[in-house]
Design a protein around this nucleic acid. Structure first.
Lengths: 205, 205
DNA sequence: TGTACATCAGTGAACGCGCGTTCACTGATGTAC
DNA sequence: TGTACATCAGTGAACGCGCGTTCACTGATGTAC
């Protein structure tokens, strides 16, 4: 048994079980291990234990693979945010904090994918599925913000505050990944910061 | 006159005036035009109008070039932040807003370099000069925060609030560059948001 | 149940490409006399 | 002022490499009879 098989654990014989899914998983693994630039089709194939021609049975080209991997990651992020939001009743300040924490946790768990999701310029601009999940995330934050402020989710104040929240949490996520300019923030301080954010109740104007 | 020359405007004959500087400028140009990944030594040489071997008289390798370009960009960022901070008296809420605005403006003016500065994982970890400028930026924000709150720059509350400020502005910068998840924020709203941040005066604990 | 066949997910060899880096070289410049 | 020479920033050709993509192929699987 080669170590390639042990890593991805499949490939019974000729026909793969789910090569598409396994390739996307290989991409994720590579991006996390080697960094956002450390991904190539060849490497992913090696990881999945197939020839370099195999992916073209499931994807049109390199962009398609990366886009699909990003879409999956976005769905993971949305799922995490949803779970966090659902764990607290509307209006509970802890709900805002939990939502933010889920975002930060995702960035810490998958820094490579997170960077690609928000730092890519390559060729994933016009992808309706991607913008769909993006919109869903945005809506979720706006709903939590609206509940928090006691206004509908599409109230301008809720939208504005949701955006400000997002900025804050997004920036914190990036700075923690980089640790180039910023100090590492210990978990307690991070939690306290997010709790404070949840306690701010802007007055709707 | 080739368009290469017209772009970078130099190379009198054999000896270049300042090839080092011109290569770094070419990198900046390429990164802004083609995106963070669209940089190669070969392309930069083409832009500067020299052979692909020339850079090795000034840099040790690819990493060295990129690191030098990032360092220059960091110094531009610091200079912009310093000017913004110096334009207002200590304690003036407008000073905080101006500092934030300078940061956002830089990200908008040089999105490619900004992404590389804060998104690179390649090989610029152990660069004392880089961390030096990074520290200087951080100190500047902490000083502005301390002045704003009426405490010394190294007071824990100033440090914490400076970090929070940075998160917010950094996140906003990234979200505006991406415009994947977030709407484009019009300049007036951006200015209002930064002004509001400047009006928050956290009580030091 | 057994055979014939269509399907299509895989192979593996090959391609052209642009890259980073090296090498021996060349020729412009500044300095010593 | 003029000549000889050391310096060193440039050249241009070459290299090996890994990449993305293609191609004709092969063989496992499911279905029809």
């Amino acid at each position: 048994m080669s170590d390639t098989k042990s890593l991805v654990q499949a490939k019974k014989n000729y026909h793969h079980g789910d090569l598409r899914g396994q390739l996307l998983e290989a991409v994720r693994e590579l991006v996390e291990r080697e960094g956002p630039d450390g991904f190539s089709i060849a490497e992913a194939c090696r990881l999945a234990g197939v020839s370099t021609a195999a992916p073209y049975k499931h994807f049109t080209d390199r962009h398609d693979i990366l886009r699909s991997a990003v879409l999956l990651a976005m769905e993971r992020l949305y799922a995490a945010m949803k779970i966090a939001a659902d764990a607290h009743p509307p209006g509970d300040p802890a709900r805002v904090a939990a939502l933010g924490q889920s975002y930060v946790d995702f960035a810490k768990a998958e820094p490579g994918m997170f960077r690609i999701m928000f730092g890519m310029t390559e060729g994933q601009e016009d992808c309706p599925e991607l913008s769909g999940v993006g919109e869903a995330c945005k809506l979720l934050v706006e709903q939590v913000a609206g509940d928090h402020m006691g206004v509908p989710h599409d109230h301008p104040s809720a939208v504005a505050w949701a955006y400000a929240l997002w900025c804050f949490v997004h920036g914190h996520s990036f700075l923690q990944m980089d640790d180039k300019l910023a100090q590492k923030v210990p978990p307690e301080q991070e939690a306290r910061m997010l709790r404070m954010v949840g306690e701010v109740i802007p007055t709707p104007s």
